[in-house]
């Protein structure tokens, strides 16, 4: 099986609390996996383990055949994994364009002498990157907002800007932590559209999302986490019907 990302037996404890217990999950290349589950199920902890922010107590993470369990976030990023954050983390006092450009850090070359002299080659690179930044801003629906400070953007736009910042890196794997949480229904559709287009362009996507209807529409696979355990993984419809999932969300019927 050609899994792009494979977590095996991931366990993470905070003191006595088990945030993740023995989570084994594979993400085939080109799939769109939605991770759902009640609050506190360990979804964001799972992301943090995948991207080097947390070190799991047990288990391993493999990406494109390589063990990335102990890599720090910057090295994980260098392999082609990008993420967004649940609570939108932008660089507030930078403009939208600069935010996106910061995302292109690893694609730009850097040379002190060239920088100080402002060589034509460097200028060309900067111009091309700036043009590409405009492209990604337009892609997420922020055309013409390049000069606005990120802090001055309304919430929905900030979520989109975060996506543009991830996309300019040309990631192989994109991890989205609740891309549509807290936005209006119109904006949710737009964000869903951005996710779909990105997936269709060949990027493998893993998305944490609470909106079940949205998940059913977008995802090719759904994984359900509950209290740190992987409950079930499979195609959207059967997962939705699964009694264990219904129980996790709604509780068991009292007899």
């Amino acid at each position: 099986m050609n899994a792009l990302l494979a977590a095996e037996g991931l366990s993470l404890h905070f003191g006595g609390v088990a945030a993740l217990s023995d989570v084994t999950l594979e993400v085939p290349e080109g799939s769109l996996l939605a991770v759902i589950g009640p609050n506190g199920a360990g979804k964001t902890s799972f992301f943090n383990c995948l991207t080097g922010y947390y070190r799991p107590n047990r288990g391993s993470v493999r990406f494109a055949g390589r063990d990335i369990t102990r890599l720090p976030p910057d090295q994980v990023a260098a392999l082609g994994i990008r993420r967004t954050f649940q609570n939108v983390r932008l660089f507030p006092r930078l403009t939208s364009r600069e935010n996106v450009l910061a995302g292109a850090h690893l694609r730009a070359t850097s040379n002190l002498v060239a920088m100080l002299l402002g060589t034509p080659a460097l200028r060309r690179q900067e111009r091309l990157l700036a043009e590409e930044a405009e492209h990604w801003l337009a892609y997420v629906g922020l055309a013409g907002r390049g000069d606005v400070l990120a802090a001055d953007l309304p919430y929905g736009m900030r979520k989109r800007l975060e996506m543009a910042r991830a996309l300019i890196a040309h990631p192989r794997l994109l991890l989205l932590d609740e891309p549509a949480a807290g936005v209006s229904s119109v904006e949710r559709e737009e964000l869903a559209d951005v996710v779909r287009r990105t997936w269709e362009s060949g990027v493998t996507v893993v998305m944490i999302e609470h909106d079940v209807e949205l998940v059913m529409r977008l995802a090719s696979t759904v994984a359900v986490l509950d209290r740190g355990r992987l409950l079930v993984q499979g195609p959207p419809e059967p997962v939705r019907q699964d009694p264990r999932v219904i129980e996790a969300y709604l509780g068991r019927r009292q007899r």
């Binding site: 954050f85 932008l90 006092r93």
Partner: peptide, 27 residues
Amino acid sequence: RARRSRLGRAWLAIREDEDTAYAMGIK
């Protein structure tokens, strides 16, 4: 020059949010 370069953007990203800068691949 530094401010408008890759170097300067990395610095400002660190100033604004160190943990997030890390996720951009910034050392």
